[in-house]
Write a protein that binds this DNA or RNA. Structure first.
Length: 507
RNA sequence: CGGGGCGUAGCGCAGCCUGGUAGCGCGCCAGCUUUGGGAGCUGGAUGUCGUGGGUUCGAAUCCCACCGCCCCGACCA
C-alpha cells in the first residue's frame, strides 16, 4: 500500500473535530465503547496513561499531608437526602440498586428478586457517606484537620456521553477534608486547586485558567467552587479539575462536630476536590494532531520506543544486542528526576506499520535501530512533536547523553505551543456586538472553529449569565483569580462590573 | 426527550432509488517474493444485511414498529 493519506487520522481536526477526537482515541488504542451504553473499556495504553496521572497526583496529595482510604460504592438512599442542594443536583443522575438477588424467570431468563428494604444509590460522589464516617471520627479539635483522599469509580447517569470526557462510569480521585476553622478549609481549597494547576501545566503541559465558578456553575451543596479550565483545540473550554469549599453545609447535614479547646461544640468546615479520567480526554484534545495522539514526556507511559530493524537474519542478534545496550543506557539516564521510560518493540511487524503505530500512540521519541546504525554506532531518531518524516541519524553516545534534555525540550515545547494557542484565541471584548460576533460561526450548518475565551465584564447577575447561555450556549467558565481586578462596565447590562470574567463554550 | 445522520464480514464502506438470493478495501490465514520502512503476488476463511412484523412467487432493497450508535440541543466533571 502506498502512502496516500496525508495524515494518519481521518477526518482531520479541521474537517470534523468531534469525529477526529474519537478516531484519535481509537487509533491510539486508549479505550472503546462497552456493551453497556455510556460506559467505556479503558484499554492498556489508556489505562497506563491514567496510572501515570494517578502516580504523580497521589504523590502530590501525600506531599500535602493527605492519606488514602476507601469508602463503599453503595450509599443508603436517605444519605443523599441530607443536604438539600446536593439532592437536587445529583438525584437526576443516580443509578439505584433495588434488589440483591436474581432468580430464573419462566421464560428461561433471569429476574431480580429479593427487594432491598432501602434502595442503595451507586455513588455519584461520596460527600454524604464520607460525611457520615467523618462524624464518627471527629470528636475533638485534636482530630482536625482530617485529610483524606480516595481513588474510586463513580456513576452519573448522563444523557450524552463521550469517551473519557463524559462517561456514565468514570474513575477519579476525590479528596475530602474537615477543618476546625473556615480559614483553614479555604486554605485547603486553594492549596488543592494549586496542586491541580501545577499538575495540568507542569505534567500535562496543558495551560489552564484558574478561577472561581459562578453560583450557577457551583457544585451542588458547595459554598464556593473553584476550577481549572483548559482550552481544547476546537477552542472550547474543558473543566479539568474542581476544588470546593463546602462551608459547614455538609458538616451540618452529617453531624461532623468537634469540641474546641475551650470546650464548646462546633461544626467542622469541610472541602472536597477531584479530577477524573476526563483528564485523559483533555490531554488528547490539547496536544494531538492529525497523525494521532501526542503525549507530553512527563506523563508518557513510554518516553522512548526502540524499534529494532530486523530484516536480515545475519544481523539479528547483533542488532538486538545493540538495542538492549541503548535501552540500558537510556534507562540509566534521568528526566525530571526519574529514570527514562524505555520500551523496546520486538513485535514481528513491518517497520512502517510499527513506526506509524507509535506515532498514533503519541510516544515522544522514536528510535529505529538497524545494522547501518550499529556499524556507525548511531541511532535514527524521530520526535513526536515534529513531522513524521523529519527524522535523522545521530551518534549513539550523543543521543543517550542528551535524552533528558530532549524530553525536557519536547515537554516545554508542548506547553509553549498550547499557551500560544490559548493566548491566540483569548480576546478582551467590551461590546455586546463584538461578543456575539465572536461566538457566532459564519456557517451555522457546518460551524467552523470559532470563538475561544472571551474576557468580558459582567455585573454579577445570574439572569445576564442565563441570557447569554440561552442565546449563544456560552457560559462563564470562571472568575479568574490571577491578575488585578480591573473594574469596568458590563456590556450586557450597562451596569458596573468589578472585574472581567472568562466566557467560553464548554464541554 | 427534540432535530439530523447511520446500523451490511474483525474494521471502514458500496449495493437500497428502479425487489431476483451479497460485494469492495483494509485486516486475518497459507505459500512465495521483498526488506531503512504504513510491502508485492497467488490462493483461502469469514455475513441470521440491527431486531420484530407486514407486502410479495421472491426483501439488504418497499411499508410499519422497536432497539442501538454518532452529531447538534436540553442536563452535567
Amino acid at each position: 500500500m502506498s502512502t496516500k493519506n496525508q495524515s494518519a487520522i481521518s477526518p482531520t481536526r479541521a474537517e470534523d473535530y468531534p469525529e477526529w477526537y474519537q478516531q484519535v482515541v481509537r487509533a491510539a488504542d486508549l479505550a472503546e465503547n462497552s456493551p453497556v451504553r455510556g460506559c467505556m473499556v479503558i484499554k492498556p495504553w489508556g489505562y497506563s496513561l491514567w496510572e501515570q496521572m494517578q502516580r504523580v497526583l497521589d504523590a502530590m496529595f501525600k506531599a500535602t499531608g493527605h492519606v488514602n482510604a476507601y469508602f463503599p460504592l453503595f450509599i443508603p438512599m436517605h444519605f443523599l437526602e441530607k443536604e438539600a442542594e446536593h439532592v437536587e443536583g445529583f438525584a437526576k443522575e443516580c443509578a439505584v440498586v433495588t434488589h440483591h438477588r436474581l432468580e430464573a424467570d419462566p421464560q428461561g431468563g433471569l429476574r431480580p428478586a429479593g427487594p432491598l428494604d432501602e434502595p442503595l444509590v451507586v455513588r455519584p460522589t461520596s460527600e454524604t457517606i464520607i460525611g457520615a464516617m467523618f462524624a464518627k471520627w471527629v470528636q475533638s479539635y485534636r482530630d482536625l484537620p482530617l485529610l483524606i483522599n480516595q481513588w474510586a469509580n463513580v456513576v452519573r447517569w448522563e444523557l450524552r456521553t463521550r469517551l473519557f470526557l463524559r462517561t456514565t462510569e468514570f474513575l477519579w480521585q476525590e479528596g475530602h477534608t474537615a477543618h476546625a476553622t473556615a480559614g483553614e478549609a479555604e486554605e485547603e481549597t486553594a492549596r488543592m486547586l494549586e496542586v491541580y494547576r501545577t499538575f495540568a501545566e507542569d505534567y500535562m503541559a496543558m495551560p489552564v485558567c484558574v478561577g472561581e465558578k459562578t453560583a450557577s456553575e457551583r457544585f451542588p451543596g458547595a459554598e464556593r467552587t473553584f476550577s481549572i479550565e483548559a482550552m481544547m483545540q476546537d477552542r472550547k473550554a474543558l473543566q479539568a479539575g474542581t476544588s470546593h469549599f463546602l462551608g459547614q453545609k455538609f458538616a451540618r447535614a452529617s453531624g461532623i462536630k468537634f469540641q474546641t479547646e475551650a470546650g464548646r461544640e462546633e461544626l467542622a468546615w469541610t472541602t472536597s476536590w477531584g479530577v477524573s479520567t476526563r483528564l485523559v480526554g483533555g490531554l488528547v484534545m490539547t496536544h494531538s494532531d492529525d497523525d494521532g495522539l501526542v503525549l507530553p514526556p512527563r506523563l508518557a507511559p513510554a518516553q522512548v520506543v526502540l524499534m529494532p530493524v530486523l530484516h536480515q537474519e545475519a544481523h539479528r542478534s547483533a542488532v538486538l544486542a545493540y538495542c538492549d545496550r541503548v535501552a540500558a543506557e537510556l534507562r540509566a539516564q534521568t528526566y525530571a528526576g526519574e529514570p527514562v521510560r524505555v520500551l523496546v518493540d520486538m513485535r514481528d511487524q513491518r517497520g512502517g506499520e510499527k513506526v506509524w503505530g507509535w506515532i498514533k500512540k503519541g510516544v515522544p521519541v522514536r528510535v529505529e535501530i538497524g545494522p547501518r546504525d550499529l556499524a556507525q554506532d548511531a541511532v535514527f531518531v524521530g520526535r513526536r512533536d515534529r513531522g513524521p518524516k523529519e527524522r535523522g541519524g545521530q551518534p549513539r553516545a550523543e543521543f543517550v547523553a542528551g535524552i533528558g534534555a530532549l524530553l525536557a525540550e519536547i515537554q516545554d515545547g508542548l506547553l509553549a505551543r498550547a499557551r500560544a494557542f490559548q493566548a491566540e484565541h483569548t480576546r478582551i471584548l467590551d461590546s455586546r456586538d463584538d461578543f456575539y460576533a465572536y461566538f457566532t460561526p459564519a456557517n451555522a450548518e457546518q460551524p467552523e472553529p470559532h470563538g475561544g475565551f472571551a474576557l468580558a465584564h459582567w455585573n454579577g447577575d445570574p439572569a445576564v449569565e442565563a441570557q447569554i447561555k440561552e442565546a449563544l450556549n456560552v457560559t462563564i467558565r470562571c472568575i479568574p483569580l490571577a491578575g488585578e481586578a480591573e473594574p469596568g462596565t458590563c456590556p450586557f447590562s450597562g451596569q458596573p462590573s468589578p472585574r472581567r470574567v472568562v466566557f467560553a463554550k464548554a464541554y
